[in-house]
Amino acid sequence: MTFILEKAEKEMRQAYAETIYHLAKQDPDVIVMEADLSSAMSTGSLKDKLPNQYVNIGIMEANMMSLAAGLNVTGRKPFIHSFGQFLTRRAFDQLFVSLAYAQLSAVLVGSDAGVTAEHNGGTHMTFEDMGLMRLVPKAHVYEASDPTQLAYLLEKGYKEGGVHYIRTIRKSPVKLYDEQTNFEKAQVLREGTDVTLVASGMMVAEALKAADLLAKEGIEAEVIDMFYIKPLDSETLLRSVRKTGKVVTAENHNVISGLGSAVSECLAENYPAPVRRVGVREQFGQVGVTPYLQEFYGLTAENIAKEAGNLVNK
């Protein structure tokens, strides 16, 4: 089965703005919080459409986290957006203590995932956000790959309460899903018997392309969109690895602490199998366009296929 990769009709930020608008209309307790990145995230129009349910804090992410905690004490349900590194690296103690440790609720959306921060460069490029969030007890961590999936995760976080971190790119991903998709589990997008490719976010498309490359060499790869980073969907992962016995992970993130770590930890404890991790290794971000940066950090279909081929032919 070959996936035809087309751009989604909707940018991730449009899906974000539309979904939270829809939820806010249904529930007057929803409050949308931005720290001066509204225009970057298409939420600017919500200011007028949602009086009393939208607040632009100004450039103060630390204050935004603790303030959201206070709002939640009074019954408000915050959706908080900023670039990923400002939510996690910059305001980590605030989200850890004021929200998570205090057992309060907020849905946090960290945008401009990894290399997609492009020309904002190394200061703005986070390869650590999923790792930091995985360390927060009871926090849910996801990386969205598609607008329909993002909408589902936003609503899920809002309904469940607690701290939910959703990592996403801002602009157009490939279209992977239709409205009817059941997102309760990680998605097996392609079935195969020789190796399992586990990817999240923008790397799902690369994994699908890698599977096509591998097929030409006679290697049948199974591809999983593992958007459930924590808790990891270990059931879907283990079912696949029991069949293939080999794994390559692919993430637009540091290989330490992110998807590759989560998958390795799960396998080490439940079903030891060889793993190769495609991702960023001991490097900081830099300016550049996404394709250039993907090449630089090895976040490509070719690199995934190479790692998988080496593993299968070992």
Binding site: L67, A68, V73, D93, Q94, S98
Partner: peptide
């Protein structure tokens, strides 16, 4: 700790965070 002590509204101790939370409570 708001989850341990009856009557405590907000978990504080990491300095600077309580005033932000109180501001959020007042705003809410």
């Amino acid at each position: 700790d708001r989850n341990l002590t009856p009557g405590v509204e907000m978990t504080c101790g990491s300095l600077g965070q309580g005033i932000s939370a109180a501001t959020g409570i007042a705003y809410g």
